[in-house]
């Protein structure tokens, strides 16, 4: 680095450490999981080539459509619950009033706890005899929350929302702050009410924020492993056995790394497909310019 380059053309070396680390533990494993899906391995011994054996086994397993369905349901329902709530809270918090700043500090706290801690807390809090139901004296809160498939599913959705709405409302808060005030002033001159302003200015202006938040939410929902593992372990039965959990159980509990790798690939394809669909839904341009950082 004697003479400073004119356009910094030889700065590539600065990216090398990051590339090596991300390559070694991010990209290589991604290729590796594809290779492993054509092998049989118990996680300890030797790895043998096994052709399409694992693929055939997994694709014929009725557990797969079930896990896909549960994963999809968790994703769709948690998106439906989180998005409107996050938009409302985010827009509300974007206001300049002091008390809103104080509220946003409190709102953010769930994000500080680990999924394991949150799951453990809710398990105890939802105990029919010593939990919230007994505390408030409300009969309907004192149920066997984690013992009934439908109830356990709703608990997962609720806890996921509790954990992640803070983060997404923060994103919407940032988005809402960037909407020019003049747009609202113009609408007010035309006599538009609050609801009208929300639907004709705020929501359309938040379009790209919605795409960003939804992408993170939807891709993130594929990785609710820790929370579900500790909260329900996929149960009762396999009512909350999402793909990530299915992968773990096949690989690290049943010692079938081949089939587990097949599930992992399905998980990756699921994630990439969703990210693409969402980007297309946004009309492409917004996220492209975002990617270029324009």
């Amino acid at each position: 680095m004697s003479a400073p380059p004119r356009h910094g053309s030889s700065l590539g070396w600065l990216a090398v450490p990051a590339l090596l680390l991300f390559g070694g533990f991010g990209v290589v494993p991604l290729v590796g999981v594809l290779v492993l899906s054509f092998t049989s391995w118990d996680g300890l011994g030797d790895i043998h080539f096994a052709g399409f054996e694992s693929w055939r086994a997994v694709l014929a397993d009725p557990g797969l459509p079930h896990a896909l369905w549960v994963t999809f349901l968790v994703m769709a329902v948690s998106w439906l619950v989180q998005t409107p709530a996050s938009i409302l809270l985010g827009v509300f918090l974007a206001g300049k009033q002091r008390y809103r700043a104080v509220l946003s500090v409190v709102y953010f706290v769930p994000l500080l706890l680990s999924s394991a801690a949150i799951a453990i807390t809710y398990k105890a809090l939802l105990d029919p005899n010593f939990g919230l139901g007994a505390g408030l004296g409300l009969e309907f809160l004192a149920q066997d929350w984690l013992g009934e498939p439908a109830l356990a599913f709703s608990v997962v959705i609720f806890v996921v929302s509790w954990q992640f709405i803070p983060f997404h409302s923060l994103i919407y808060q940032g988005g809402a702050r960037q909407i020019p005030r003049s747009m609202y002033e113009a609408a007010e001159l035309d006599g538009a009410g609050r609801i009208r302003k929300f639907f004709s200015i705020t929501l359309p202006q938040l379009k790209y924020t919605i795409v960003t938040s939804s992408t993170l939410m939807v891709v993130g929902s594929l990785t609710f492993f820790d929370l579900i593992f500790v909260l329900t372990a996929g149960g009762p039965g396999d009512a909350t056995r999402v793909l990530a959990l299915d992968m773990y159980k096949r690989g690290f509990q049943a010692n079938l790394m081949g089939p587990a790798s097949v599930i992992a690939i399905i998980l990756v394809l699921f994630g990439l497909a969703l990210a693409l669909v969402l980007r297309r839904a946004a009309g492409g341009t917004g996220s492209d310019s975002r990617m270029e950082g324009a």
């Binding site: 991010g26 494993p29 991604l30 999981v33 492993l36 990530a244 690989g251 587990a260 992992a264 994630g271």
Partner: peptide
């Protein structure tokens, strides 16, 4: 890399 769920790569890791 942002769109790839990390947990899918844990077996090779």
């Amino acid at each position: 890399g942002l769109a790839v769920p990390h947990q899918a790569t844990v077996i090779p890791v």
